[in-house]
Amino acid sequence: MTVQQSALMALTMALIWLGAYFSFQQHFSAEPVYIQQLERLSSELERERMRTLLAEMRMRDFQQEVAALVPQWLDSLTPGQESYPLRNLASVTAAPPSPSAHRNSAAEILLEEGKREFRQGQFARAIRSFEFLIEQQGYSRHAVEAYFLLVESHYQLQQHEQVLARVEQMIQLFPGHELTGTAMIRMGHVFEYRRRTHEAQAVYRSLIQLFPGRAVASQAQEALSELEF
């Protein structure tokens, strides 16, 4: 028997011994039973959660039906001790305020944050805040102001291409708004800066036509006179 053959035989025997050892250990171990129990319990817990969810839904069904019926009865009752239980019930079932109110306040917070950064001269950060507001709360009543301040921030950083792009958007979204007119003045300035005089003149003229008698029209008139002079 060579050394190699001996080594091979020893390895095989060791493997057989190990295999037998682990088979015996597995056979007498309680681990698989515990794993099965754990799976069964997890499954039962999940079922219980789903049944709870269903019970909550049925509770909400009932609550909403009551909430829909209570106001009809409340109208016919006098506000005294007798109607107290029903008024109490109405207060429990009444809905919380509409989330649109929260959304508006969220937009307000974002706008304030952007304004603060703008006032501190942190225009790049202000741009991020206004862009976030526009993206997340595009339907908010604060959107137009966010657009305007975004234009101003870009103008302060001399990012003229972005100024022109954002003013174009404002013209499309809020054509009659005075802030759009003010932003258009900035557009005219950018054209002047780039020596595109004819385009600047056209912008000022259209402002005078679009906003007659308003402050923005007089600003446009002034800019136009200077340009023609």
């Binding site: 909403q64 209570v70 009444a94 809905a95």
Partner: peptide
């Protein structure tokens, strides 16, 4: 979007 009934007994709708 629509949600819970309000104090007037109407389900809220945005």
């Amino acid at each position: 979007r629509f949600g819970p009934v309000n104090e007037k007994g109407l389900s809220q709708v945005e």
